[in-house]
């Protein structure tokens, strides 16, 4: 009897451990380390900085389904001459020299299995602010995921704004 209890405990423990491992494996890092320590605050909020609009770099947000990550050519447009002595900018220049794009890591995404087809364009055209879905990225040094973009969260907003919550709007 004791042995049975013991083995039940062992089996339960194994299941829990496997569960934790799997859950961790499928969890997304909240603030992934980027190939270059790009600082959004410096570019957007800092008073003596360039105070760029989001769309300066994410230029396709109102045209395409993707906001798009700027091409390194865009970065080098300024950094050819600005802050060239900075270590991070030199890393950037090295990528540009090799004609490579830095391997940026994503902060927000949906798994392909979610079968969800989010598109930026209609959301921007409806007047949504970037921070509504992405948090105050402009005040962050390293971008961190602040908004938990679950389906319930999407639907809440759609309900509030009387937008269709038909499954087929996003899932297809």
């Amino acid at each position: 009897m004791k042995r049975l209890t013991k083995s039940v405990v062992v089996v339960c423990a194994v299941v829990v451990i496997i569960g934790i491992v799997l859950l961790r494996a499928s969890g997304k890092p909240e603030a992934p380390r980027q190939p270059i320590e790009f600082d959004h605050w410096q570019h957007v909020t800092k008073e003596e900085g360039p105070q760029l609009e989001c769309t300066f770099c994410h230029e396709n947000v109102d045209k395409s389904s993707h906001a798009t990550i700027p091409n390194i050519i865009t970065c080098m447009g300024c950094h050819e001459s600005i802050l060239t002595e900075s270590g991070e900018v030199q890393k950037l220049a090295a990528f540009a020299e090799r004609k490579e794009q830095p391997p940026w890591r994503r902060v927000y995404w949906h798994e392909p299995e979610a079968n969800v087809f989010y598109t930026h364009k209609p959301h921007i055209r409806a007047g949504l602010e970037c921070i509504t879905c992405h948090g105050k990225v402009g005040e962050m040094h390293r971008v961190r995921r602040e908004v938990d973009q679950t389906m319930g969260w999407c639907i809440d907003c759609h309900r509030t704004r009387s937008v269709s919550i038909d499954c087929y709007v996003c899932h297809r």
Binding site: L22, A25, S26, K28, E59, N60, K63, S64, S65, H66, T68, I69, P70, N71, I72, Q101, P103, W104, R105, R106, W109, E111, P112, T119
Partner: peptide, 24 residues
């Protein structure tokens, strides 16, 4: 298949170049 983040491999595809804007 439950491990890793294949989505990150998509990043290069989301960088526009002279010819293409991703998603269009």
């Amino acid at each position: 298949s439950a491990c890793g983040h294949p989505e990150e491999k998509l990043i290069p595809a989301f960088i526009p170049d002279e010819e293409f804007v991703p998603g269009i």
